[in-house]
């Protein structure tokens, strides 16, 4: 490999700065589609606080893989169970993270996944019960290194 000239080194450095700055600027201006995701899931109804315990690290050093686990209080019987839980990240390029579908056979409304977070932001969980009631919970995660690439 040829040694990199001073000029090339500057060009590379400049390119890197541009690459890292542009997505950030875009994020700041355009909020993502979190509101649409929430509206679609809730059908415009208000979600009450509670029932969900959402476990996320306060500070995620690597946004590429952030462990998330959640539990929703529910007897999980055929009469009363958690139907769906939607996870939303309000600072990612796309707000949707995952939709978890439970059934009475799940036994417990408990799940864990690993998610990508582009920047420091809120992660929102919305749960829909079998009777149609809605619950919500949110956590802020500080992200040191973004997980969506540039």
């Amino acid at each position: 490999m040829k040694p990199i000239s001073r000029r090339q080194a500057f060009a590379l450095g400049g390119g890197f700065v541009a690459l890292t700055l542009v997505p950030m600027a875009a994020d700041a201006q355009v909020s993502n589609d979190a509101a649409q995701w929430i509206a679609k899931f809730t059908g415009g109804k208000e979600a009450a606080k509670g029932k969900i315990s959402l476990d996320l690290p306060e500070i995620a050093e690597n946004g590429n893989t952030v462990p998330l686990s959640l539990t929703v209080q529910s007897p999980m019987t055929a009469e009363s169970y958690v139907k769906e839980v939607m996870l939303i990240a309000d600072g990612n390029p796309n707000a949707g993270v995952a939709t978890l579908m439970f059934s009475p056979l799940s036994g417990k409304a408990e799940a864990a996944v690993r998610i990508r977070l582009a920047a420091t932001q809120n992660v929102i969980a919305l749960a829909k019960m079998s009777d149609g009631s809605l619950f919500t919970e949110q956590k802020t995660v500080k992200v040191t290194i973004g997980g969506c690439g540039g």
Partner: peptide, 17 residues
């Protein structure tokens, strides 16, 4: 159990339920 995943799920998806 089922889930719909979006690009915000990490590589080598780990799912626990």
């Amino acid at each position: 159990f089922a889930c719909a995943l979006e690009p915000a799920i990490s590589a080598n998806p780990y799912i626990q339920f």
